[in-house]
Design a protein around this nucleic acid. Structure first.
Lengths: 179, 179
DNA sequence: AGCAGGTGTTTTACTAGTAAACGATCGACT
DNA sequence: AGTCGATCGTTTACTAGTAAAACACCTGCT
């Protein structure tokens, strides 16, 4: 229950997912709970990290999905259509429409219609939007670095590598497994 | 763009997060994008896994939060109060109230009032609820195993270990960092 | 006994997301 | 030229979540 909070060298023995797995084992002995140790932890980590992450963003009045959208525009460096933004931020078109409405009202993005194809719109950051992203991003990353400093650099690298491996393969094979 | 989809031995080089990081590097060279490689991937993995995960659950007409709630009752083996369920499933009390209403209507859980303290309720699985959980769980785990089979057993173990380490430390230190 | 403050749960008002239908427009084919 | 089907974006109807207030009840203090 106490946070050791010194150097992070000793192995952490307690995590809630391990406790959950232990409970399942006593109720259904022999059940293959292997997947839980990854999937359960990924979900839980995502929830905890997001909660922690949100702090610097909230100060700027942005939600993470909103920041993702602005970030996509900033990092690609050019205009994107709503459809491209949806793909880039892994959200539905309808969600992007709503977010764009808000961000436009706040003066962070602008839109113009395509001259050739009048169905499509092109969205770009305003100067205020770009300044906001550029201002928040380092703060955000510094905060995340602090949160992740509970791991040693080696552990971080290993974790990042393995996650990249999983993610790359999932993204590659998802269409196949989805059926 | 193509899924190699043979043996998963060769390192996966492509994942969307790596591409995003590369974009940021060209726009803001020298930015410490290290945290993204973990946090971005954790978030994206969680989203993809959840989407994949949902398939067997949906067939039973359950969302993951609902299944988590039923699972908490099943694995602890005894009644839980709404508050305990909220803590156990990491959701708000209000969300638990709503879910309980639905699950009670479907006949999967029952509630009784505490005799001593009339504020608290005790929730337990009905026989139908228990059967449902016991029926779905192996299916669910088999599905998850299939999804995770894109990694070698060694990679899975290493990933599970590192995630456990991160999760354990986050859970330990979160109260401190939250301020 | 009776009240103050705390706790467990629910309710209320609201937000953000989704899926599916819709309207507009494009490209291709007859 | 005109129509068919596909595509882009938005709208609509709805769902599930949250934060904060409300409610009901308990415990401890005087």
């Amino acid at each position: 229950m106490t946070a050791p909070n010194g150097r992070p060298e000793e192995p952490a023995r307690h995590d809630t997912v391990a406790a959950v797995v232990r409970q399942w084992q006593t109720v259904h002995p022999g059940l293959d709970t292997g997947p839980m140790e990854i999937i359960g932890r990924v979900n839980r980590c995502a929830a905890l990290l997001q909660q922690a992450e949100d702090a610097p963003l909230r100060r700027a009045g942005l939600s993470r999905p909103e920041f993702d959208l602005l970030g996509a525009l900033r990092r690609t460096g050019h205009e994107l259509t709503p459809g491209e933004l949806a793909r880039e931020t892994f959200s539905s078109g309808a969600a992007v429409t709503k977010r764009l409405k808000q961000l436009t009202m706040r003066g962070l993005v602008e839109r113009r219609g395509d001259t050739r194809d009048r169905r499509v719109a092109h969205v770009r950051l305003t100067e205020a939007g770009r300044d906001l992203v550029d201002g928040i991003l380092p703060e955000q990353l510094a905060y995340e670095t602090a949160v992740l400093s509970v791991l040693t650099p080696e552990a971080r690298d290993e974790l990042a590598g393995r996650l990249g491996e999983l993610l790359g393969r999932l993204e590659g094979s998802l269409g196949v497994l989805r059926s």
